[in-house]
């Protein structure tokens, strides 16, 4: 779905006069380049050896069992899921409201707010994470409460990640909307809130669902922003993987990463059943 679209874009770069076998060949090259990392990851995760080399000495599931034996991965997965769900549930409604204001209101300085909302996309994650950390520390002193190393602090940071995607996707779906359907609803007796609930929201549904998917993925796989915000014993999965990597190198990480890919893959397939992703992204 998303993959196909991206490949479609890439194929636009093709020289115009590719004929015969050249086109299928090119497409398979692109596919290989895109899918190779994922496939190699999955394959390595079942190599029966400590140091990865080729050809493998045998096949095994023991890295998956090993990952299971390290509780930081299981709790990391749970925390990542928790943070991703919460930041999606908070960030997408906020981003949607912002998108509505950007498209519909007569707000002054709209383009300023537009760029501001895209900010989290531009600022490197480590920088944003560090900035948040410093701010949290200051607020902690001011308010006399824990913010750093709490779930709340982490969710707040990840909510920022959800904003630019949500704003972009929802703005796009709002701009393509025929407003006369809303006027028809008003004409038929619907008050403003009813119009929003019964007509506007269902009509921008695909944009919102896509935004939720993106917000979730952004949060779920985020490493850089989270680094400074997680607390001891409550690392997210990517942070847990990084710490593991500091001491050992073995295919356990490949096994964990494969699980991560599967979670996102399942999510995309499920989402695609509700909204055709190829139509919106």
């Amino acid at each position: 779905m998303i993959l196909l679209k991206a490949i479609g874009r890439l194929t636009l770069l093709l020289p115009a006069k590719l004929s015969g076998l050249a086109m299928p060949l090119w497409i398979s090259v692109v596919y290989t380049l895109m899918l190779a990392p994922v496939v190699i990851l999955a394959v390595i995760s079942v190599f029966d050896q400590q140091i990865v080399s080729f050809p493998p000495e045998g096949w095994t599931w023991r890295w998956y069992l090993n990952a299971w034996d390290h509780p930081e991965f299981a709790t990391g997965l749970l925390i990542s899921l928790q943070v991703a769900v919460l930041s999606t549930l908070i960030g997408v409604p906020l981003g949607t409201a912002a998108a509505l204001a950007l498209v519909r209101s007569k707000l002054l300085g709209k383009s300023f707010f537009n760029y501001l909302l895209l900010g989290p996309l531009v600022v490197p994650g480590v920088v944003a994470g560090a900035a948040l950390y410093l701010a949290y520390v200051r607020w902690e002193n001011l308010l006399d409460m824990d913010i750093t190393a709490t779930l709340g602090g982490l969710v707040a940071g990840h909510t920022l990640l959800a904003m630019p995607w949500t704003v972009r996707l929802v703005v796009a779906s709002l701009e393509g909307m025929d407003r006369s359907a809303e006027e028809a609803a008003v004409n038929l007796g619907a008050r403003p809130w009813t119009v929003f609930r019964r007509v506007t929201l269902p009509m921008m549904r695909s944009g919102v669902i896509a935004a939720m998917l993106f917000a979730f993925i952004q949060s779920f796989e985020n490493l850089d922003l989270s680094l400074l915000l997680v607390g001891p014993g409550s690392s997210t999965l990517p942070v847990a993987m990084l710490s593991y990597l500091e001491f050992r190198i073995d295919p356990t990480l490949a096994a964990v990463a494969t699980v991560q890919v599967v979670v996102i893959g399942v999510l995309m397939v499920v989402t695609d059943r509700f909204v055709k992703l190829s139509r919106i992204v």
Binding site: A181, N187, L188, R198, M203
Partner: peptide, 19 residues
Amino acid sequence: PPYARDTGMVFQSYALFPH
């Protein structure tokens, strides 16, 4: 307000609710 006027409008684009 328009929602309290009791007019029935047919729009150029028909403006049906797609969902």
